[in-house]
């Protein structure tokens, strides 16, 4: 008999529930969720973490994470997270927000949470569109990009320019870790996970506000194939939203994760 030893190389994180998500095929929300769950597992934070879900496609994020969760009004997640973190400073608190949620209706909340240096982590899903409501223009929609409310392509003369949140939040004195990553291929997914890890490390070290912006796909509302969506991120989104570290607290430098 040949004896074989099986090695587990891939399994469901403990911080994940055993259910199917409601996300569309090719949507990267699921990948972002998984990365967060893996990081929380690795850091052993599950039993003290409180997540704040947004209004948007990820409104039901709490169904997929096996941890305490609240669901905030549209754009208000950073305020709710502030309210929680201030009364439970020992807990880990993170928000998960789309671009409409964070960069449009919730602009005041995110800016002031960063300005106050709230010791929370924000995972920002930038898919350049309003997914949940059926593909309207977002504050991050690219110039010329067609959406259901910019049917002839976003005309920056009439509708303004995309907002680069990582760059803006990085100049706030209260922020400790602000980066932009992408989820369009395996190499970038790995880098995204590292960034998420560092964002939570920043919170655990009390370094202030941390945010990871993740360039994400929405094949359904972009009305292109999954493969083309990944190319769209690489070719069209990254030039407008350059990947990079916009603020890294010196205390995090050299940290091996």
């Amino acid at each position: 008999m040949v004896s074989t030893t099986a090695e587990v190389v891939y399994q469901r994180p403990e911080s994940f529930t055993d259910v199917h998500t409601h996300y569309c095929p090719g949507c990267t929300h699921g990948i972002a969720h998984r990365l967060i769950a893996e990081v929380i597992d690795e850091m052993g934070l599950r039993e003290k973490t409180i997540g704040v879900a947004p209004v948007g496609c990820s409104v039901f994020a709490y169904k997929y994470f096996k941890m305490d969760f609240v669901e905030a009004p549209h754009g208000r997640a950073p305020a709710m997270a502030t309210g929680i973190k201030r009364v439970l400073p020992e807990n880990t608190v993170f928000t998960y927000q789309g671009d409409g949620d964070l960069a449009s209706i919730g602009m005041a909340e995110i800016m002031h949470a960063a300005a106050r240096g709230e010791n929370i982590t924000v995972i920002f899903i930038n898919n350049a569109i309003y997914g949940m409501t059926g593909g309207q223009m977002a504050p991050t929609t690219l110039p010329g990009m067609k959406t259901t409310s910019s049917p002839f392509g976003r005309d920056v003369e009439l509708t303004g320019h995309p907002i680069r949140m990582a760059e803006i939040l990085a100049i706030m004195d209260g922020s400790g870790y602000i980066v932009r990553r992408s989820l369009h291929n395996a190499a970038n997914i790995r880098k995204s996970k590292k960034a998420i890890r560092l964002a939570f490390e920043a919170q655990e070290r009390g370094l202030g506000f941390s945010m990871v912006e993740l360039l994400s796909s929405c094949p359904t509302n972009w009305k292109i194939s999954v493969r083309d969506s990944m190319e769209f991120i690489a070719d069209k989104m990254i030039p407008v939203f350059p990947l990079g570290d916009y603020k890294v607290s010196p205390s995090l430098e050299g940290l091996k994760v």
Binding site: M80, G83, V87
Partner: peptide, 24 residues
């Protein structure tokens, strides 16, 4: 105990909402 002068009443009530969810 926690005190924050929020950026608006919209934010203030959502901070209250958060703390209330935390059972405080």
């Amino acid at each position: 105990r926690a005190f924050v002068q929020a950026e608006s009443e919209v934010s203030a009530i959502n901070m209250v909402y958060g703390a209330a969810c935390a059972g405080k």
